[in-house]
């Protein structure tokens, strides 16, 4: 089951990656190499086997509800790409 160029572009969209044509071709080839390896999994007998998300017995972990010191705003904003008046600037998302 090989991915077509169109499917590669769709996965790129889902991944929020704007790929060049060259990348679509190369990544598509590499993806298909790997997918051919995945076919092997269909041979595994998984009848009545539960999927395992992680090895830690999963239950919700709660902490006590106590207030703490937040990170200083200035220190947090040091890493923001664009800042004005203590706020992060982003492109307009609502027209009007």
């Amino acid at each position: 089951m090989a991915l077509t160029t169109e499917e590669v572009k769709k996965v790129a969209l889902l991944s929020r990656l704007e790929l060049s044509e060259g990348e679509v071709e190369k990544l598509g080839r590499h993806l298909n190499d790997l997918l051919s390896q995945f076919e092997k999994l269909q041979l595994a007998d998984v009848t009545d086997v539960d999927p395992l998300a992680g090895v830690v017995a999963s239950s919700n972990v709660f902490r006590d509800d106590v207030s703490g010191e937040p990170f200083p705003r200035e220190e947090m904003l040091v890493n923001a790409p664009e800042v004005r008046d203590g706020c992060i600037i982003v492109p307009r998302i609502i027209e009007g």
Partner: peptide, 14 residues
């Protein structure tokens, strides 16, 4: 076909 099956095989590993 992929993710769920891989997680099942992960159980087999354990």
């Amino acid at each position: 076909a992929y993710y769920k099956r891989a997680q099942q095989v992960r159980s087999l590993f354990c």
